[in-house]
Design a protein around this nucleic acid. Sequence first.
DNA 1: GCCGTTTTCGGCCCGACTGTTTTCAGTCG
Length: 567
Amino acid sequence: METKFTNKEVTTLLRNVSAAHQVKGANPFQIRAYDVAADAVEHASSDVRALWESEDLDKIPGVGSHIANYLDEYFTSGKVKHFETVFKNIPNSMFEFLKIPGVGPKTAYKLAKAGVKNIADLEEKIKSKTLLKKGFTEKPLENILQGIEEFKRKSDRILLPVAGEVAKQVLEHLRKHKAVLATDPLGSLRRRVATVGDVDLSVASNDPKEVIEHFKKFPGTERIIESGEHTATISVRNGIHVDLMVQPPEHYGSLLHHFTGSKNHNIHMRSLAREKGYSISEYGIKEIKTDKVRPCPKEDDVYSLLGMQTPPPELREDAGEIEAALENKLPQLVELKDIKGDLHTHSFWSDGQNSIAEMAKAATSLGREYIALTDHSYPTLRFYQRLKEIEQFNYSQDSIRVITGLEVNINSDYTLQVPDEILAKHDIIFVSIHTSFRQPKEEMTNRILKALENPHVDVFAHPTGRLLLEREGIEADWETIFKRIAHLGKFLEIDGYPNRLDLPDNLVREAKRFGVKFTIDTDAHQIQHLSLMEYGVSVARRGWATKKDIINTLPYRELKSILDLKN
DNA sequence: GCCGTTTTCGGCCCGACTGTTTTCAGTCG
């Protein structure tokens, strides 16, 4: 079988090894080592196969000499002898069952051993009660059936604004109850991850029982997944899970910290606490010697007890933020209020829905000092007439400056969509990939490099071309591209449109290391989209970007000089 | 199996909920 050796495949391989070890009752720490390695590969910002080629596998934290050797064998021959030994006597179907929420290795193994072939077969065998005779009991089987429904229905993750909307509705419901003293969205939503799995919410209250009961009565509840003294999970539309945790106000800071995560951030924090003689949980910080618990009403209390700064939630991925916080060296991240203008927008001159004047006025009301209209450079566009309209609009008012721009396709044959003399008439040129997304890596890289060499080009827009939940991004040699962009003094875009969020946060951080500067834009196609700027800012923050890394935080006068604008 | 101001051994984050069980295993985050 042809295999592509993607990060996803390696992740699955490592998770399967972990699961097999669990079934065979291996050392729990060995099991965790494989899980940690799988997590690391899954979240790696570079292609694992490329790291292998440059002999950098052991630079992935959590991948040590053993796993690196196994992966070397895997990339060389397509299989790993040791893993095959581990998988011995384990039916293959077990690994399919792991995809069902609520089914872990032990249950999956038991099902496979009972002769269940696949998920469809499992569904049939539960419904026909065949499995009841094979050592399974009724309630767990019912839960597995629910899990199968969820597996079939649920797209893995949802876009950040969709999660935000669900959270908003549930928070409004929660706030109606007088026992709710405070309530916040946490988890990946608070960390502003591009896509969110479950919606996590917290409540401070002295009456958790009442709050949990009230939560379960949220009008959109489709199913109650679980319900305990301090926590509950409901399922709402589209199978989206909403998790609630309740703590009294004196522990609320600990709860915020615990439930914001990420998992790896928490694990690192707890190891750190342990070294200093403390144990962290959602109830506070316990001094191990004395068993004395120090409550943390505010989140800052958790961090200050360990002698560190509070990292902004966007940074809590255990990617160096804890070390930085300990040294008091956290970056001052860019904020929405720093943004002075929007440089990537569309009007109905191309595929937008509003006029240039409407877009400009809407931008003015959001407090923008300038806006670039960067319509697609369709060859049929009446470029000069459009330029004239912009010029006239600028003369007609002085509340906002409209910058003339174009978004120009980089063709698959490395040429640009329109000739240089048209580009020259515009103040800002964005280039982007809109066709042939699957060119081989080297061709794609050269295609981009060639476009960047054009002296009229200023910004490389939504660089990876990914569409979240729909389409993977292009494959390119990002390090080479980042170096070139920095050298040319050009810019990368962070596109804030919710299903793009492109450049992705991990690549923002990498590009920044090479000295690249960015624009954060909305890519608005109608006036309502102009307020999507906050999502682009979130991506920049997750990429450790500060105000000075972002050129559209500059007032128009300064932007004009670095972009060499005409007026 | 990983890792190192406890560095090549000896540790490794912490707790909730479910089901079924009088003390725990499995799963999840």
